Amino acid sequence: MNVNPIYEECVKACLACMEARNVCYDACLKEENVKMMADCIRTDRECAGTCA
């Protein structure tokens, strides 16, 4: 199946974004004061979901 290169690049960028947000999410959860990171965690999850 042939995929339009523009769509392929878009999918790759979205997957890279999702992975970066998940890495940040995981790092936030390891912080000493997780409550302080709540907004960052929420934003990371929303962004990762959108990218997925």
Rank of each mutant, 00 (worst) to 15 (best):
R45M: 14
V3W: 08
G49C: 02
C28H: 03
A48Q: 01
R45K: 13
E31Q: 14
K35H: 09
C47G: 00
T43W: 03
M1Q: 08
E46C: 03
G49K: 00
N22H: 08
M37E: 11
C24Y: 11
E19F: 11
D44F: 00
L15A: 09
C28N: 03
V23A: 15
R42C: 00
A13S: 09
A13L: 13
D39L: 09
N22D: 09
A52V: 07
I41K: 04
I6F: 08
E32K: 13
M18L: 09
I41G: 01
A38I: 11
V11G: 05
I41C: 08
Y7G: 04
M18D: 09
C14N: 07
N22K: 11
N33E: 13
T43D: 10
C10T: 03
K30N: 14
C24D: 12
C17L: 15
A27R: 10
G49R: 00
C47R: 01
G49S: 04
C47A: 09
Y25W: 12
T43V: 10
A20E: 14
D26R: 12
A20W: 08
V23H: 12
D26H: 10
Y7K: 03
C28M: 15
C47M: 09
N22E: 14
R21Y: 06
E19T: 04
T50Y: 13
D44R: 01
M36W: 12
C51Q: 05
M18W: 06
V3Y: 11
R45G: 00
E46Q: 13
T43F: 06
V11T: 07
A52H: 01
C14D: 05
M1N: 11
A38P: 00
A52C: 07
N2S: 10
T50G: 07
A20M: 10
M37S: 05
C40S: 09
D39M: 11
G49I: 00
C10D: 07
G49A: 05
V11H: 03
Y7W: 10
I41W: 05
M1G: 06
M1K: 14
L29V: 02
P5G: 12
A48R: 01
R42A: 06
A20P: 02
Y25C: 07
N22M: 14
A16M: 12
T50C: 12
A13C: 10
D26Y: 08
R42D: 02
L29M: 13
C10Q: 05
C17D: 01
E32H: 08
C24A: 14
K30W: 08
D26N: 15
N33K: 08
A48E: 01
C28T: 06
R45V: 04
E19M: 10
A48W: 00
E31K: 12
M18G: 11
C17K: 01
C51F: 07
A38C: 06
D39C: 03
C47W: 03
L29W: 11
M36N: 05
Y25A: 10
A52S: 11
A48V: 01
N33S: 13
D44W: 01
T43M: 11
N4E: 13
L15F: 04
E46L: 15
V11P: 00
A27L: 14
R21C: 15
E19C: 04
V3R: 13
C24P: 00
A16D: 15
L29Y: 06
C47T: 04
E32V: 12
I41P: 01
V3N: 04
E19V: 06
E8Q: 15
A38S: 13
A38V: 09
I6C: 03
Y7M: 11
M36C: 06
